[in-house]
Nucleic acid binder design. Structure first.
Lengths: 236, 236
DNA sequence: CTTGTTTTTTGATCCATATCAAAATATAGA
DNA sequence: TCTATATTTTGATATGGATCAAAAAACAAG
C-alpha cells in the first residue's frame, strides 16, 4: 500500500452518483468531503488490504480495477468480486473489524479512503447518508446472492455469459463502452469467480467467438451479440 | 401471511443477544420495543413475503425456521439461506425497496416485525443500534461470501459437511443440541442451497452414515464425528 | 530487441456429479 | 385408521467440466 496522497474531492468527482455521495445534496457532499481521509494510489499487483488486517476504513474505488479474494486455509482461493470506479471496498470487514479478504489492484488504481468511525458519525449527522449506505450494504447482499444463483444453478456457458453481460453493463454505466471490454483479470481469476477452471473459461470464450457472440483477442473482448448472450443466460 | 398478533417484547426475549437488540442497554431495548410492530405467526409452508412484494419491514425470526430462495425466470430456483431464531429476514430488500426472494416457513414459526422507516429513525436516535445494524448487514455479506466459497471451490462432500457443521453451530449457539439436528428442509432444498442435486445429497448423507460420521434417519441427523467432518471441510 | 516468465489456447482423457429410473419410506389428509 | 402424495434412497448410466499435457502467445525485465 502506500503512496502519493491527495485530498479527496467528491464534489468534483465524475462518478459521484455511483459512489458514496449518491443522492446527497451539495451541502452534504461538502460535509462528506471534509471527512474523507485522502486519495491513495495503488499500483497494479499491490494489495489495498489483506485478510486479517485490522479494519479502519472503507475505500471507494476512484479509478482502476480491483479484485477481492478469500483464501481457504488449504491454499484454495476464491475470487469474490471485481470492483471498478465508484464501488466500495471493505464492507465485509465491518462485521468483525478485520478484513476477511484480500483486495488487489488489477491495474494502476486510486481509491478514496474514509475511516469508518468518521463515517458512522457522519451517518448520525446525515440520515440521508445513512439511508444510502444501508442501501449500499443491501446492494452488496443482492449482488452476492446473484453470484450464489450463478454458482449454484447455472451451467458454465451461462455463467460466463452472465459475467460478461454484467461487466459490460457496469462499464456502460460509467460511460465507457459497453461492448468493447478490456478484461483486467486473468482467465484464472474469472474461473475462480465463476467456479470454473481456467481452461474451461478459455474454451468457452473460444466457443463464443466461433458462435459469433464475441470477438476475443486475448483480454480484449468485443460483444457482438448481446441478445445472444442474454438468451444464453435465460437458459435456452 | 398472517395471523395472530402479539406485541413484541425484546426485553424478555431469550435470544435477544442473537437478534437486533444485541449489545443494547436496557433503556435502548425498551425504546426499540416500543417501535416494534407486532409478532406474527407464519404457518409451515406459508411465505412471509414473496419476490416482488413491496418492502416495508424487516422481520426477526422469533421461533421456527425459514428458507429464502430466488427464482430465476426459467423456473430454476436457488435457495439462498436458511434462517433460525434471532436471524433477520428482508435485508436484501433494502436495496431496491422490493423483496428479491421468497421467504417460506419450513415449520410453524413466529417473527417480530419492524417497519424499516421506523427502524432507520431509531438508528438516528441510537448510534449504538445503527452501529450494530451495520455489522448485521456486513455479517450477511460475509455469510454470502462464505457460500460463494463453498459453491465455487468445494467438492460435494465438503459442501455438505460444511453445511451440517454450520447448522450445528447455529443450533448450539441457541442452546439447542449441536449434535442432534432435525433438518427442517428437504434434500432438494439442501441440494439447491449447495448447488447439488437431491440424489447427490442423499447419497452423501448415506456415505457419511456408512463412514460413521453421522447417524442419519430421514431428517434426523446426529453428528457422530464432528472432527471428521471438520477434516473433510479443510479438504483432506 | 532478446530472454525468461506468465498466461492462454487446444487436445486427449478422466471422473465427480447429473440424469434417468424405480422401489422404499414418510407425511398429510380424509 | 387408510390412502394419496411427497420425499428419500439406491442403482445404472451419461456427461459437463476437470485434469493432464504441451504448444502458442503475450508480457515484463534487462
Amino acid at each position: 500500500m502506500d503512496f502519493s496522497e491527495l485530498k479527496s474531492v467528491c464534489g468534483g468527482c465524475t462518478i459521484r452518483e455511483l459512489c458514496l455521495p449518491a443522492g446527497l445534496s451539495d451541502e452534504e457532499v461538502l460535509l462528506l468531503d471534509q471527512h474523507m481521509a485522502h486519495r491513495q494510489v495503488v499500483k497494479k499487483g499491490d494489495s489495498l488490504y489483506r485478510t486479517g488486517d485490522a479494519f479502519r476504513s472503507l475505500f471507494a474505488v476512484s479509478t482502476g480495477f480491483f479484485k477481492t479474494s478469500i483464501l481457504h486455509e488449504d491454499g484454495r482461493a476464491q475470487v469474490t468480486g471485481f470492483q471498478m470506479a465508484g464501488e466500495i471496498l471493505g464492507l465485509d470487514a465491518i462485521s468483525t473489524d478485520q478484513h476477511i479478504c484480500d483486495a488487489v489492484a488489477l491495474e494502476d488504481s486510486a481509491v478514496c479512503e474514509i475511516t469508518f468511525d468518521r463515517f458512522e458519525e457522519l451517518g448520525q449527522l446525515m440520515s440521508n447518508l445513512q439511508h444510502r449506505f444501508n442501501k449500499t450494504l443491501s446492494r452488496e447482499i443482492v449482488r452476492d446472492q446473484g453470484v450464489m444463483l450463478l454458482l449454484g444453478s447455472m451451467r458454465s456457458e451461462e455463467r460466463l455469459a452472465a459475467f460478461l453481460v454484467n461487466l459490460a453493463k457496469r462499464f456502460s454505466m460509467r460511460k465507457q463502452s459497453g461492448s468493447e471490454l478490456v478484461l483486467r483479470m486473468t482467465r484464472e481469476d474469472i474461473g475462480s469467480y465463476l467456479g470454473l477452471k481456467l481452461e474451461t473459461v478459455s474454451r468457452i470464450l473460444s466457443r463464443f467467438h466461433d458462435q459469433q457472440l464475441l470477438d476475443v483477442k486475448g483480454r480484449n473482448v468485443r460483444i457482438l451479440d448481446q441478445q445472444g448472450l442474454n438468451k444464453l443466460i435465460e437458459g435456452s
